[in-house]
Amino acid sequence: MSQQTRSTEERLVSLLLTLRNTSAGLSAEELVAGVPGYASSGPATNPDSARRKFERDKDTLRELGIEVTTTGRPEEPRYRIDEEDYALPALHLSAEQAACLSLAASAWRGGDLPATAKRALTKLRAVSEGPTGSSSTGLPALTADLSGDEIPEALVAAVDERRLVTFDYVSARSGSTRARTVEPHHLRLADGAWYLDAVEPSAVHDTNSTRGSEEPEGTAVRLLTFRLARIAGQVIVHGHPGAFTRLPASTPPRRRALLAVLPGRALGLRLAGAHLDPEPDPQTDLPAHLKGRDLISVEYEDPFSFAGTVAALGDSAVVLAPSSLREAVLAHLRGAAALTTSEGN
């Protein structure tokens, strides 16, 4: 934001506050003299220029829907803003609307979001709906890296220039780390995380890749998917520009999970999925020990990451299908239990 733009915004806010805090109204001369941004800063300041600036700002406030009331004699008008014309009606947001606001706010990185905007977001969340018996703190933490801050600059350049890269990658299956050398073809955002679609120069199938055995059999050259959050250390770029021909971007397969969720829990999954009615379809009848839960259907792309998301909910969400996802969630929970046991010893 330029200094000139910032000064204009600050001047408008100062004018707005001044007009709201006068009951008798203020003349144009009083406003020009008293509001920061209008007052003469030296003998070279043109009073007519300051007056024209005030007239433009007054019109801007009216364009924003803020009624500036004029009182007094026509030749000596006085200006003020009546509170009833300015105050908004009582505001009430649904949980979904508040979550959307949180997601929009996450597009601004923490240091760029002004303090006033942060306070406004906090107030909006305070008037939003929460699950029954809980507060708005139950809203999901939507922190998608929409601006791409987690993407290494070297990787962005390598994708653009079509150069090979080498990085250490942590396997989602085994947890082991080893160096990978790939042709970086595409960067994309999915389910709140950044991924690299790449090809190994040797085109040899590797069971440590993110997709592993889920890649189609018999494919000579295929895109492997790497989650950027699992890249450890620096990305090293080498080779000459134009080292490979970029494959067309493809839409990764998405899977559908069937979950039984406790009422008022797992709001993030509810927002991402669809609520199902088990009554019309006998096949979706819930087991006796899950009666009273809500049945939701959610699409996901990365099985390992989604399993971690469900596992983090504990007994609030139970996977009914597919069985591979249920086993992955159990593996997460067993791993967490093992860590807890070892720490206790």
Results as ranks from 00 to 15, higher is better:
L12D: 01
S14I: 05
L15T: 03
L26Y: 01
L26E: 14
S27C: 09
A28I: 02
A33L: 00
T60M: 14
E63M: 08
L64R: 08
G72W: 02
P74K: 14
R78N: 09
I81V: 12
I81K: 11
A87C: 09
L88E: 14
H92M: 09
S94F: 04
S94P: 10
A95C: 03
A99T: 13
S106A: 13
R109S: 05
G111F: 06
D112V: 08
T116R: 12
R119E: 15
A120K: 05
K123C: 07
G138N: 13
G138K: 07
A141R: 14
L146W: 11
G148N: 13
E150C: 14
P152M: 11
L155H: 09
A158Y: 05
D160G: 04
V165K: 05
T177P: 10
T181K: 00
E183S: 01
W194A: 05
E200W: 05
P201M: 01
H205T: 08
T210Y: 03
L228I: 06
L258E: 15
G268P: 03
R270M: 07
A272H: 03
L276G: 11
P280H: 08
P282R: 15
D294Y: 05
V298W: 09
D302F: 10
P303V: 12
A307I: 04
A311S: 05
A321Q: 06
A328I: 03
L339Y: 06
G344D: 15
